[in-house]
Structures are given as structure tokens and as C-alpha cells.
């Protein structure tokens, strides 16, 4: 079985009401270990919704979703927390760092929830920050860092647990093109060196062009799904 297996996934808001929205409308998708997938589509097409379901941040209205062989679509809240903690690293468009904690403490958080002891935690978190080039900034608070630096802290947090999957929803959306490129380079490097599976939402064609596989969403359905070479962006 593939790392990710989705069958007939629906996400329907206000179901049965007149303002019903089919954000996901029958998605079948499988993604293998070590792939680098870009998800593209118009605004409102359902990219974030798909990512949230893939990332176990949200449950589908219908359908089955297996992540790493486990049936994620019918897990309890705490089981989903566990999956997110050990299997997935998230990178959000808005960074989502905790402002009261400094860079190191933010990166340590997922390790705390894994129950890792203080010493090892600090070491691992520091290594992750060094990998994203923030070895000098470990005690800066989010408010004391640029957007690019904050996003790199978020990446360090996502990779600190050694999760096999990284999911990023428009990680460069709030960054200028140069810092955006640095962030993407980091992702590519992780993919190359660690074999991390990467799912990336973007509406930047250049970004998508760097992926191995591109999936295009429209109105909650997958309309294109092909290796990069074949796609006419």
C-alpha cells in the first residue's frame, strides 16, 4: 500500500443546505513514499481543504483515507494528534509560530509532545535550526525575525521530529521571491538528502515546475495528475 491512499474523499460544508459547498468532491489519490508533489489550482478550488484532510488536521465528510497503512478517516482526535506528531511536519503560509516562545522553544514543541527529554530535545531542535541556517538565531522570538526567518523556524519545527512527510500550504506565499527560493531550496534539499515525502500547495507555476509530480484541482476534483515532464503549465 502506498504512503497515502485516498478513495472517494468528500468534504462538504453546510451539507443539505442551500449554501452547500463541495470543497472536495470525490478525490481519489495515491502518493508514494519519497515523492515531491505540487498541488495547484485556482483560488477556492479546494487545495487547502485537501491538504488539511491529507494532514489529518480535518476529517473528510465521506470516503476512506489511509495514511501509512492506517485508516486516518475514522480516527479519534487523540489518534490524529499522534499521527500529526510523528508522521507529518506542517509548514503553513502564515508560519503559525507561538509568539511567546523563542525559536528554539517553538522547534522543541513537537518533541515535547513526543515526550523526549529536555537535553536531547534541545540538541535535536538546535540541529534542525542549524539545518535551515538559523543556528545563530535560536533565542530570537518570532517578532524579532523576518518573514523568511520565521518560515524557516517553521520548517525546522516541521523537520525536527524526522517526520517522513512534509506538507506545505503556500509556504512562500508571504515571502518575497528571493527568500521564497531559499525556503524552496531547503525543501528540495530535504527531499534529496533524506528522502522526505513532500506535498506542496502553490499557485506559482515556477514552484510547481520544480516538483516531480503535479496535481491540478478544480472545483474539488483532481483534473490533472501527471509527472512534471508531461504537464503543460
Amino acid at each position: 500500500m502506498n504512503l497515502i491512499e485516498m478513495e472517494q474523499i468528500y468534504k462538504i460544508y453546510h451539507e443539505g443546505l442551500e449554501n452547500e459547498v463541495r470543497a472536495l468532491n470525490g478525490i481519489d489519490l495515491s502518493i508514494g513514499r519519497g515523492e515531491f508533489v505540487a498541488i495547484i489550482g485556482a483560488s477556492g478550488s479546494g487545495k487547502s481543504t485537501l491538504m488539511n484532510v491529507l494532514g489529518c488536521l480535518d476529517l473528510p465528510s465521506r470516503g476512506t483515507y489511509h495514511l501509512n497503512g492506517k485508516l486516518a478517516s475514522s480516527m479519534t482526535d487523540d489518534e490524529l494528534s499522534h499521527i500529526r506528531n510523528v508522521e507529518i511536519g506542517f509548514i503553513f503560509q502564515g508560519y503559525n509560530l507561538i509568539p511567546a516562545l523563542d525559536a528554539l522553544e517553538n522547534v522543541e514543541l513537537p518533541l515535547i509532545y513526543q515526550g523526549i527529554g529536555a537535553e536531547q530535545r534541545a540538541r535535536t531542535a538546535r540541529e534542525a535550526l542549524e539545518r535551515v541556517g538559523l543556528g545563530e538565531r535560536v533565542h530570537n522570538y518570532p517578532s524579532q525575525m523576518s518573514g523568511g526567518q520565521q518560515q524557516r523556524v517553521a520548517i525546522a519545527r516541521a523537520i525536527s521530529t524526522g517526520a517522513p512527510i512534509l506538507m506545505a500550504d503556500e509556504p512562500t506565499g508571504a515571502l518575497d521571491s528571493k527568500t521564497g527560493e531559499q525556503v524552496l531550496d531547503t525543501l528540495h534539499q530535504l527531499h534529496r538528502e533524506q528522502g522526505t515525502t513532500i506535498l506542496l500547495i502553490t499557485h506559482d507555476n515556477k514552484v510547481a515546475a520544480a516538483a516531480e509530480r503535479v496535481i491540478r484541482i478544480a472545483d474539488g476534483r483532481i483534473v490533472v495528475d501527471c509527472p512534471r515532464e508531461e504537464i503543460a503549465l
Partner: peptide
């Protein structure tokens, strides 16, 4: 609430 959301997203269980 947002902080709680972040904590949950990266793996905090309810009881944590």
C-alpha cells in the same frame, strides 16, 4: 485558540 490550534496541529493531545 490559535495557540491551541498550533499545539494540536503539531501533536498535542487533549489532555496535554
Amino acid at each position: 485558540t490559535r495557540e491551541i490550534g498550533i499545539r494540536k496541529a503539531i501533536g498535542a493531545k487533549r489532555k496535554s
